[in-house]
Write a protein that binds this DNA or RNA. Structure first.
Length: 204
DNA sequence: GCGACAG
DNA sequence: ATCTTGTCGC
């Protein structure tokens, strides 16, 4: 599927809606809840939301993460009534050992523009970006630039941004900064995180 | 062989 | 991902 990913874009510069996706797991590991929240890209208000609950379809194996979370995320995506113009994934896109992380997989399967925003690295080397919000440094692996280490808050640990599908790296970083007016992680990720935890608790 | 390893 | 404990800062 890797050749099917559009790593150029540039994708929408002013999307009307942006979606956040996340998954929560039961402590026992036998249940999970996936959530998608769709935000108005200008006001960051949630305009649609959907969840999918079930059992993990695959064990957690670094590099094969999509096989674990993608099925439940697709379930949730199908329940949306609003078609988001961009998917902001909790995990990497191009910044993957075989250059096809969750964000690429989700983008190709849905056909929607997608980007990956990881909290910790999976592959690559980088220099720490300057302390100011907006500062960044290239994430490199095997002689190629696979993403960007982006500071979304002054003096706070940066996030790892990479292209998923139908988006340029420049635009991906601009979208992430637009989604982080107050906290380290995008508002899309934060609302989806709360929703999947809530859905998991409700699905007792 | 050893260490690393998105969530 | 999940859980715990303690510290720092607004």
């Amino acid at each position: 599927m890797r050749p099917l990913a559009d790593l150029v874009g540039p994708g929408p510069t002013a999307p009307a809606t942006v979606a956040g996706l996340d998954v929560a797991y039961a402590e026992s590991g036998d249940r999970l809840a996936a959530a998608v929240t769709v935000l108005d890209a200008r006001t960051l208000a949630v305009v649609d939301r959907a969840v999918g609950v079930g059992r993990p379809a695959f064990p957690y194996v670094p590099g094969l993460f999509a096989f674990r979370e993608l099925p439940a995320l697709l379930d949730a995506l199908e329940k949306l009534t609003v078609r988001p113009e961009l998917l902001v994934c909790d995990g990497h896109g191009l910044a993957h050992p075989r250059r096809f992380g969750l964000a690429c997989h989700l983008g190709v399967v849905t056909g929607l523009p997608a980007i990956g925003v990881g909290k910790t690295p999976l592959v690559g080397e980088w220099d720490p970006p300057a302390a100011r919000r907006g500062a960044w440094s290239p994430l490199r692996d095997g002689g190629e630039v696979i993403g960007r280490v982006l500071r979304t808050r002054d003096g706070v640990k940066p996030v790892f941004v990479s292209v998923g599908h139908r988006m340029s790296l420049d635009n991906a970083c601009a979208r992430v900064l637009a989604l982080t007016p107050k906290y380290r992680l995008p508002e899309t990720t934060r609302t989806a995180d709360r929703l999947c935890r809530e859905a998991l608790a409700a699905a007792c």
